[in-house]
Design a protein around this nucleic acid. Structure first.
Lengths: 173, 173
DNA sequence: ACTCATTGTTGTAGTATGCAATACTTTACC
DNA sequence: GGTAAAGTATTGCATACTACAACAATGAGT
């Protein structure tokens, strides 16, 4: 049942939102949020026991930002340097991340994805896009056509840059 | 700039989605997803150091489902009974959850929120709704009006029940 | 009464996380 | 040039989350 009766059709009293609007919208957003979180979780779980969610976030940062030093990586992940350092330890031992002394400063260490790490990121991302595409394809035409505009407006109102321009903070889950 | 040029206007070739559609929609969904995850994280962080995200999920389950035994709680959270047991340990010691022997079966133990636990859930939830409402209020009217229908259709296509009917699995983050 | 499933807990282990302390390197200033 | 300050990574210590396996207590069915 698309176009539920909540707020389509009848012209509203200008810009002010009444309580019903806010509640309905908030419910809708929370519901969609649950679904998206579930999709994210599944796409990582499908990578097997090879990786955890925080580790995947780390790999994504390295892929999107390129080689980084520990301090920057920690900043992007919003964790402390010690946490980042130990996560890198583990990912190095399983061969997904590479540690190299910087050529310009002997105190810096440059982290980069290995071929294997790149492969894992690609697999998980592909699966996620596929799952989302499958859901989108099941939507009624009208709703699907509006999805891009509405979600973009929502993200912009929330100050989130589009998926193509990668944000420093809030790397996706 | 509502109604971007991607797919509005020109009649499409029936139900099949071309690659451009899928990419645009997927990008929009991923972007919105990042924002929602960030909002969730902030609303919990604002609860102070009083609680972690997994602990909050546990409290939410107890609030929405009512008193539960350990096995059911673990099922809802999608963790093992041992994990649930130890999380409950911690929440009992800080006075947010109450353990009571069941009256009907001596091996069952009934878990319930304390007054304090209820308060924490209410605070975090209120903050989250407030943040979302603030974002929604910043959206252009047209997009905002479409949000409910579009997101509802998306959630339905993904098999997620509405926020009011709480799902057994995938309790929100 | 005996067997078996249910239920919760504990032992053990690995990951994630932060704060504080430490060691080393670079930069800035005198 | 030499010393102080800032930057960078790591390690020690503590806590939380998580799972698997083993175990104890209870309840149900025969």
């Amino acid at each position: 049942m698309p176009t539920s009766g909540t707020l389509v059709g009848m012209p509203r009293s200008s810009s002010a939102l009444d309580a019903t609007d806010v509640d309905a919208v908030t419910d809708a957003v929370l519901t969609a949020s649950r679904l998206l979180v579930a999709v994210s979780a599944r796409s990582i779980a499908a990578a097997g026991d090879a990786i955890t969610l925080p580790q995947f976030r780390l790999l994504v940062v390295l892929q999107t930002r390129g080689p980084l030093k520990h301090a920057d990586l920690a900043e992007y992940l919003q964790v402390t340097p010690s946490t980042a350092s130990r996560m890198v330890d583990r990912l190095v031992t399983v061969g997904m991340v590479d540690r190299q002394h910087s050529t310009v400063s002997r105190r810096e260490i440059v982290l980069a994805l290995t071929r294997e790490g790149t492969k894992v990121v690609r697999q998980v991302t592909a699966r996620r896009r596929k799952e989302i595409a499958k859901i989108v394809a099941r939507m009624p035409d009208e709703a699907r056509h509006g999805l891009v505009d509405v979600l973009t407006a929502f993200a912009e109102a929330g100050g989130e840059p589009p998926a193509s321009a990668v944000a420093p903070e809030a790397v996706w889950t």
